[in-house]
Computed example of a mutant assay.
Amino acid sequence: MRLLRATLFSIILAGAPVTTGSTADGNGAWPVRPVRIIVPIGTGSAPDAVARLVGDGLRQRWGQPVVIENRAGADASVGTGAFANANDDHTLLYGFASALTVNPLIQEKVPFDPARDFVSISPVANTVIAVAVHRDLPVYSLADLARVAQDMPGKILWGSGPSLPRFIFAAFLKRRKLEMLYVPYRDVAAPPIDLAEGRIQVLITSLQATIGPVQSGKARVIAITNTRRAATLPDVPIASEAGHPEMSIDGLAGFFGWRGMPTKLRDRISADIAEVLRDPEIRARIEASGQLVLGGTPEEFAAAIEQQRARIAEIAALIDLKDVK
Rank of each mutant, 00 (worst) to 15 (best):
G81D: 02
M247A: 15
I305R: 08
R228V: 12
D136S: 15
I11T: 05
R147M: 14
V188R: 01
T225E: 09
E179G: 03
V54S: 00
R175W: 08
G290P: 12
R166V: 14
D48T: 14
V110S: 04
E281Q: 14
T19Y: 00
Q107T: 11
K155V: 13
T205P: 03
I129D: 03
P34C: 04
L292F: 07
I269E: 03
R266N: 13
Q60E: 12
R135W: 03
I273D: 04
G73Y: 04
Q215H: 07
G73C: 10
G217S: 09
Y185G: 15
A313H: 10
I37Y: 00
I156W: 02
L145I: 10
F96P: 06
P31R: 05
S248G: 12
F9M: 10
T227I: 04
V32Q: 04
P34E: 07
E306Q: 15
S270W: 01
K155S: 12
V188H: 05
P191A: 09
D267V: 06
V102M: 06
F255A: 01
V183C: 00
R5L: 15
R229A: 11
R2G: 15
I68P: 00
I12R: 09
H90I: 09
L203G: 01
L93V: 05
G73F: 00
W30L: 10
E314C: 15
V35Y: 01
A231Y: 00
T43G: 10
P184K: 12
A84M: 06
P47F: 06
G254A: 11
A316P: 15
L137C: 09
I312V: 14
G198I: 03
D235L: 11
A49R: 03
H134Q: 10
I249N: 09
P262K: 01
A82T: 02
D113I: 09
S10R: 04
I121T: 08
F301Q: 06
R283S: 13
R175I: 15
G260H: 11
L137T: 04
L142A: 08
F9R: 08
N85A: 13
L157W: 04
